Simulated scan of single mutants.
Amino acid sequence: MMRYWIGGAAMALAAGALPAPAQAGEILDRVKERGTVRCAVFDDQPGLATLGSDGSWVGFDVDYCRAFAAAIFGDPEKAEIVKMNFAQSFPALQSGEVDVANMAITYTLGRDAEQGYDFVGPTLYNGMGFMVHKELGITRAEQLDGATICLTAGTLLDAYLSDWFGARNMTYQVVAVEQSTQRYQMYEAGRCDVVTTELPLLAARRSRMQNPDAHVILEETFIKSHMGPLIVETDPQWSNVMRWTHYALINAEEYGISQANIDEVAKSTQAPDVRRFLGLEEGLGAKIGLHDGFAADIVRAVGNYNDIWERNFGMSSALKLPRGMNALAQDGGLQWAPTWR
């Protein structure tokens, strides 16, 4: 079972301070010496990270941590889960208390250029969405003219909504709340027509409502959001390990290789690109400090990107989110990976 603990020592560091410079390979060496990769995750966020009924961690961000562990050690159980809140994750990265923050953190210019962080992915292409009461019969965002929205008034989200509605000559009315969590309670009680936040979080909230089927998440989004694991940018080798773990998940799906069929494919394939991917020839792992079969170990541990999506967000999960923007580029989405060579 994956180990997990609650971080705390890193809170002494200022969240805006730049990470100390690191030599290339320093973080990977530290992780290998420790024998685990430490990942910060949200505590009890359905779809992203929750404790399962058997006491083990499950979720999209947890699966990515297990993929990192499989890439480095060949063993997904070498993932060490550290539950934290959003504010704790930044100083924890800076101090080295954790190696990666798997918390669906939004990629922004400031975090990239000023705060010394690097982003993996995007593992999730996302955006702010609308959830409405099914009984209203609303199926498109353009039907929200005149709607009431439970909202913490005066926030940046209020400004974004004003821009979105104004650009379409539409109006909305704010049902003001003092705390963000209250808006979901008021929405479920019928005090407003609409509640809004990022799509996976909306789906998580819906899954915990008294009657999830009574609520519809519209397909349209506003305010684009590129999300993914966060690492310090001072060690290029570590960035490569994290990034190519993500690409391995995407490439596996592009090749049609899943957790269910990887052993069969490995025995039968004669395709040079697939054999390179699986580490059967022209080993590439050493280029980034990993073993040649690291991509195959990732797929055996957690599957491909679609496997991860379906069990955590997809129609067979409690959240029931369509792939949407996160479909492969060849299927009309945005997820793709560079050449495996």
Rank of each mutant, 00 (worst) to 15 (best):
G16Q: 08
N304Q: 06
A101F: 01
G314R: 14
L13P: 06
V177H: 03
G35S: 07
I298P: 02
T123P: 00
G279R: 06
N102T: 12
P76H: 00
S316W: 00
F277P: 01
V194I: 11
M242C: 11
A20Y: 05
L199H: 08
I105G: 00
G137A: 14
W164E: 11
R311V: 07
R206A: 06
G59T: 09
G293I: 05
A22S: 14
L199Q: 11
S207G: 08
I231H: 04
G25V: 06
N326A: 14
A87C: 10
S162P: 07
D44N: 14
R323Q: 07
E281L: 10
V216L: 13
R140D: 13
D61H: 12
G333R: 02
P46W: 09
M209K: 04
W57A: 11
N169Y: 06
L124N: 02
G127A: 10
G35P: 10
Y117R: 15
I250L: 09
A92E: 03
Q45T: 14
A15W: 08
L28M: 05
I217E: 05
K224Y: 09
F294K: 01
L48D: 03
T148K: 11
A147L: 07
L156D: 09
E254Y: 00
G127H: 15
L13W: 05
T36G: 01
T36A: 09
L13A: 13
L319H: 06
E253F: 02
A204R: 03
V299P: 00
D307T: 07
M2K: 14
S268R: 05
G314Q: 08
E33K: 10
Q259C: 02
F277S: 02
K83S: 11
Y107E: 15
P229H: 04
L328D: 06
E264K: 10
Q185F: 08
G47S: 05
G190K: 04
A147N: 10
I250M: 04
D307E: 04
D112L: 15
R276N: 12
A79T: 02
A40G: 08
L156N: 14
L328Y: 03
K320W: 02
I250A: 11
T123W: 00
L230A: 01
Q23F: 09
